[in-house]
Design a binder for these strands. Structure first.
Length: 217
DNA sequence: AGCCAGGGTCTAA
DNA sequence: TTAGACCATGGC
Protein backbone atom coordinates (compact mmCIF):
# COMPACT_ATOMS: atom_id res chain seq x y z
CA UNK A 1 0.00 0.00 0.00
CA UNK A 2 1.25 3.45 -0.84
CA UNK A 3 1.80 5.97 1.90
CA UNK A 4 0.12 9.35 1.74
CA UNK A 5 3.42 10.96 0.79
CA UNK A 6 3.96 8.48 -2.05
CA UNK A 7 0.48 9.22 -3.36
CA UNK A 8 1.21 12.92 -3.17
CA UNK A 9 4.41 12.56 -5.13
CA UNK A 10 2.74 10.48 -7.84
CA UNK A 11 -0.02 13.07 -8.15
CA UNK A 12 2.54 15.84 -8.40
CA UNK A 13 4.47 14.00 -11.08
CA UNK A 14 1.39 13.25 -13.14
CA UNK A 15 -0.75 16.33 -12.80
CA UNK A 16 1.83 19.08 -12.57
CA UNK A 17 1.74 22.24 -10.55
CA UNK A 18 -1.39 22.48 -8.40
CA UNK A 19 -3.26 25.74 -8.00
CA UNK A 20 -4.49 27.39 -4.87
CA UNK A 21 -8.25 27.69 -4.42
CA UNK A 22 -8.17 31.48 -4.43
CA UNK A 23 -5.68 34.05 -3.21
CA UNK A 24 -8.50 36.00 -1.63
CA UNK A 25 -9.44 34.49 1.75
CA UNK A 26 -12.98 35.84 1.70
CA UNK A 27 -13.61 34.34 -1.73
CA UNK A 28 -12.50 30.97 -0.39
CA UNK A 29 -14.87 31.29 2.55
CA UNK A 30 -17.92 32.08 0.45
CA UNK A 31 -17.18 29.53 -2.25
CA UNK A 32 -16.52 26.82 0.34
CA UNK A 33 -20.14 27.20 1.47
CA UNK A 34 -21.56 27.57 -2.02
CA UNK A 35 -19.93 24.38 -3.26
CA UNK A 36 -21.49 22.16 -0.58
CA UNK A 37 -23.11 19.24 -2.39
CA UNK A 38 -23.15 21.34 -5.54
CA UNK A 39 -21.38 21.24 -8.90
CA UNK A 40 -18.50 23.67 -9.21
CA UNK A 41 -20.01 25.12 -12.39
CA UNK A 42 -22.83 26.52 -10.26
CA UNK A 43 -20.30 28.16 -7.98
CA UNK A 44 -18.56 29.75 -10.94
CA UNK A 45 -21.84 31.09 -12.22
CA UNK A 46 -22.69 32.54 -8.83
CA UNK A 47 -19.22 34.03 -8.39
CA UNK A 48 -19.61 35.90 -11.68
CA UNK A 49 -23.06 36.99 -10.58
CA UNK A 50 -21.67 38.39 -7.35
CA UNK A 51 -18.81 40.18 -9.09
CA UNK A 52 -17.62 43.15 -7.05
CA UNK A 53 -20.20 42.35 -4.40
CA UNK A 54 -18.13 39.38 -3.21
CA UNK A 55 -16.75 41.28 -0.23
CA UNK A 56 -17.62 41.22 3.48
CA UNK A 57 -18.96 44.79 3.53
CA UNK A 58 -21.55 44.11 0.87
CA UNK A 59 -22.59 40.71 2.20
CA UNK A 60 -22.94 42.17 5.66
CA UNK A 61 -25.19 44.95 4.40
CA UNK A 62 -27.36 43.03 1.95
CA UNK A 63 -30.66 41.52 3.10
CA UNK A 64 -30.91 37.78 3.61
CA UNK A 65 -33.58 37.58 0.92
CA UNK A 66 -31.43 39.34 -1.64
CA UNK A 67 -28.47 37.15 -0.81
CA UNK A 68 -30.64 34.08 -1.29
CA UNK A 69 -31.56 35.35 -4.74
CA UNK A 70 -27.95 36.04 -5.62
CA UNK A 71 -26.72 32.57 -4.69
CA UNK A 72 -29.79 30.81 -6.05
CA UNK A 73 -27.91 28.83 -8.75
CA UNK A 74 -26.03 26.91 -6.04
CA UNK A 75 -29.13 25.52 -4.39
CA UNK A 76 -29.88 25.29 -0.65
CA UNK A 77 -29.95 29.08 -0.85
CA UNK A 78 -31.81 29.64 2.39
CA UNK A 79 -29.36 27.64 4.48
CA UNK A 80 -26.30 28.83 2.58
CA UNK A 81 -27.27 32.49 2.82
CA UNK A 82 -27.62 32.18 6.58
CA UNK A 83 -24.28 30.40 6.83
CA UNK A 84 -22.49 32.96 4.68
CA UNK A 85 -23.93 35.78 6.79
CA UNK A 86 -22.72 34.15 10.01
CA UNK A 87 -19.32 33.34 8.51
CA UNK A 88 -18.91 36.93 7.37
CA UNK A 89 -19.59 38.22 10.88
CA UNK A 90 -16.98 35.81 12.18
CA UNK A 91 -14.49 36.79 9.49
CA UNK A 92 -14.64 40.55 9.96
CA UNK A 93 -14.19 40.37 13.72
CA UNK A 94 -11.58 37.63 13.60
CA UNK A 95 -8.85 37.72 16.20
CA UNK A 96 -5.62 35.84 15.79
CA UNK A 97 -6.04 32.35 17.17
CA UNK A 98 -4.47 28.96 16.79
CA UNK A 99 -5.97 26.51 14.34
CA UNK A 100 -7.75 24.37 16.92
CA UNK A 101 -9.60 27.40 18.22
CA UNK A 102 -10.40 28.59 14.72
CA UNK A 103 -11.66 25.16 13.75
CA UNK A 104 -13.92 24.94 16.78
CA UNK A 105 -15.31 28.39 16.09
CA UNK A 106 -15.99 27.47 12.47
CA UNK A 107 -17.70 24.22 13.48
CA UNK A 108 -19.93 26.13 15.88
CA UNK A 109 -21.43 28.07 12.96
CA UNK A 110 -24.56 26.39 11.64
CA UNK A 111 -23.93 25.10 8.14
CA UNK A 112 -20.20 24.56 8.63
CA UNK A 113 -19.15 20.94 8.99
CA UNK A 114 -15.73 19.37 9.05
CA UNK A 115 -14.97 19.52 5.35
CA UNK A 116 -15.94 23.17 4.97
CA UNK A 117 -14.04 24.11 8.11
CA UNK A 118 -10.89 22.36 6.90
CA UNK A 119 -11.12 23.85 3.42
CA UNK A 120 -11.36 27.32 4.96
CA UNK A 121 -8.48 26.65 7.34
CA UNK A 122 -6.21 25.43 4.56
CA UNK A 123 -7.02 27.72 1.65
CA UNK A 124 -8.04 30.93 3.42
CA UNK A 125 -5.79 30.84 6.48
CA UNK A 126 -2.96 28.48 5.48
CA UNK A 127 -3.50 26.24 8.48
CA UNK A 128 -2.83 22.49 8.05
CA UNK A 129 -6.09 20.60 8.64
CA UNK A 130 -6.70 17.96 5.97
CA UNK A 131 -10.08 18.31 4.18
CA UNK A 132 -11.92 15.05 3.58
CA UNK A 133 -14.39 15.21 0.76
CA UNK A 134 -16.32 12.79 -1.42
CA UNK A 135 -13.50 12.55 -3.95
CA UNK A 136 -10.94 11.71 -1.29
CA UNK A 137 -13.14 9.01 0.28
CA UNK A 138 -13.83 7.48 -3.12
CA UNK A 139 -10.15 7.57 -4.02
CA UNK A 140 -9.10 5.81 -0.82
CA UNK A 141 -11.88 3.25 -1.25
CA UNK A 142 -10.81 2.50 -4.81
CA UNK A 143 -7.20 2.16 -3.72
CA UNK A 144 -8.30 -0.52 -1.28
CA UNK A 145 -7.38 1.00 2.05
CA UNK A 146 -10.64 -0.10 3.62
CA UNK A 147 -11.11 2.88 5.90
CA UNK A 148 -14.58 3.20 7.39
CA UNK A 149 -14.34 6.43 9.35
CA UNK A 150 -13.11 9.87 8.44
CA UNK A 151 -10.93 9.86 11.54
CA UNK A 152 -8.97 6.96 10.04
CA UNK A 153 -8.71 8.70 6.68
CA UNK A 154 -7.56 11.93 8.29
CA UNK A 155 -4.89 10.09 10.26
CA UNK A 156 -3.65 8.40 7.10
CA UNK A 157 -2.78 11.79 5.66
CA UNK A 158 -1.82 13.76 8.71
CA UNK A 159 0.53 11.20 10.25
CA UNK A 160 2.54 10.83 7.08
CA UNK A 161 2.74 14.32 5.62
CA UNK A 162 4.71 17.35 6.73
CA UNK A 163 2.50 19.62 8.81
CA UNK A 164 2.34 22.13 6.01
CA UNK A 165 -0.77 23.92 4.78
CA UNK A 166 0.70 24.26 1.30
CA UNK A 167 1.13 20.49 1.03
CA UNK A 168 -2.41 19.92 2.33
CA UNK A 169 -3.87 22.44 -0.09
CA UNK A 170 -1.97 21.09 -3.07
CA UNK A 171 -2.84 17.51 -2.11
CA UNK A 172 -6.54 18.24 -1.86
CA UNK A 173 -6.43 20.12 -5.15
CA UNK A 174 -4.65 17.24 -6.88
CA UNK A 175 -7.15 14.70 -5.57
CA UNK A 176 -9.92 16.79 -7.08
CA UNK A 177 -8.02 17.11 -10.32
CA UNK A 178 -7.56 13.36 -10.38
CA UNK A 179 -11.18 12.72 -9.41
CA UNK A 180 -12.73 15.12 -11.87
CA UNK A 181 -10.66 14.33 -14.91
CA UNK A 182 -9.97 10.64 -14.49
CA UNK A 183 -11.72 8.98 -11.60
CA UNK A 184 -15.19 10.41 -11.19
CA UNK A 185 -17.93 8.32 -9.69
CA UNK A 186 -19.28 7.08 -12.99
CA UNK A 187 -16.12 7.15 -15.07
CA UNK A 188 -13.32 4.66 -15.47
CA UNK A 189 -9.82 6.08 -15.36
CA UNK A 190 -8.49 6.76 -18.81
CA UNK A 191 -4.99 7.65 -17.66
CA UNK A 192 -4.94 6.63 -14.04
CA UNK A 193 -1.42 6.74 -12.58
CA UNK A 194 -2.34 4.31 -9.80
CA UNK A 195 -2.06 0.65 -10.76
CA UNK A 196 -4.02 -0.50 -7.72
CA UNK A 197 -7.04 1.73 -8.35
CA UNK A 198 -10.09 -0.46 -8.95
CA UNK A 199 -11.56 1.95 -11.48
CA UNK A 200 -8.43 1.90 -13.58
CA UNK A 201 -9.06 0.68 -17.10
CA UNK A 202 -7.44 -2.54 -18.14
CA UNK A 203 -4.62 -2.34 -20.65
CA UNK A 204 -3.89 1.09 -19.33
CA UNK A 205 -0.63 2.14 -20.90
CA UNK A 206 -0.09 5.03 -18.57
CA UNK A 207 3.37 5.01 -17.08
CA UNK A 208 4.15 6.73 -13.87
CA UNK A 209 7.62 7.27 -12.55
CA UNK A 210 8.60 5.87 -9.21
CA UNK A 211 8.60 8.86 -6.98
CA UNK A 212 11.52 9.95 -4.99
CA UNK A 213 10.54 11.41 -1.67
CA UNK A 214 10.43 15.14 -1.95
CA UNK A 215 12.32 16.72 0.87
CA UNK A 216 10.73 20.06 0.26
CA UNK A 217 7.85 21.54 -1.65
C1' DA B 1 -36.51 10.73 -16.12
C1' DG B 2 -33.33 10.25 -12.94
C1' DC B 3 -28.83 10.56 -11.11
C1' DC B 4 -25.07 13.34 -9.74
C1' DA B 5 -22.53 17.29 -7.82
C1' DG B 6 -15.89 18.98 -3.62
C1' DG B 7 -22.27 18.72 2.70
C1' DG B 8 -24.74 19.62 6.87
C1' DT B 9 -28.57 19.27 10.18
C1' DC B 10 -31.95 16.96 12.56
C1' DT B 11 -34.38 12.99 14.24
C1' DA B 12 -35.29 8.30 15.50
C1' DA B 13 -33.80 3.97 17.20
C1' DT C 1 -23.49 6.88 17.42
C1' DT C 2 -25.34 5.75 13.24
C1' DA C 3 -28.85 5.61 9.34
C1' DG C 4 -32.05 8.03 6.79
C1' DA C 5 -34.81 12.10 5.41
C1' DC C 6 -34.38 16.51 3.98
C1' DC C 7 -32.59 20.63 1.94
C1' DA C 8 -32.64 22.85 -3.95
C1' DT C 9 -30.47 23.86 -8.27
C1' DG C 10 -28.33 22.82 -12.85
C1' DG C 11 -26.12 19.62 -16.19
C1' DC C 12 -26.27 15.65 -18.64
Amino acid sequence: MLTALEIYNILRENYGQPRWWSDDPYTVIVQAVLVQNTAWSNVEKTTLRLGDRLNPQYINAVSAEELETLIHPCGFQKAKARTIKALTEWFVSLETKNRTEMRNELLSIKGIGEETADVILVYAFHQPSFPLDAYTRRFLDRMGYGFTKDSERRLFFEENLPLDATVYGYFHWLLLEHGKTHCSKTMKCALCPFSSCTSRQKNNQSVFTVSQILSST
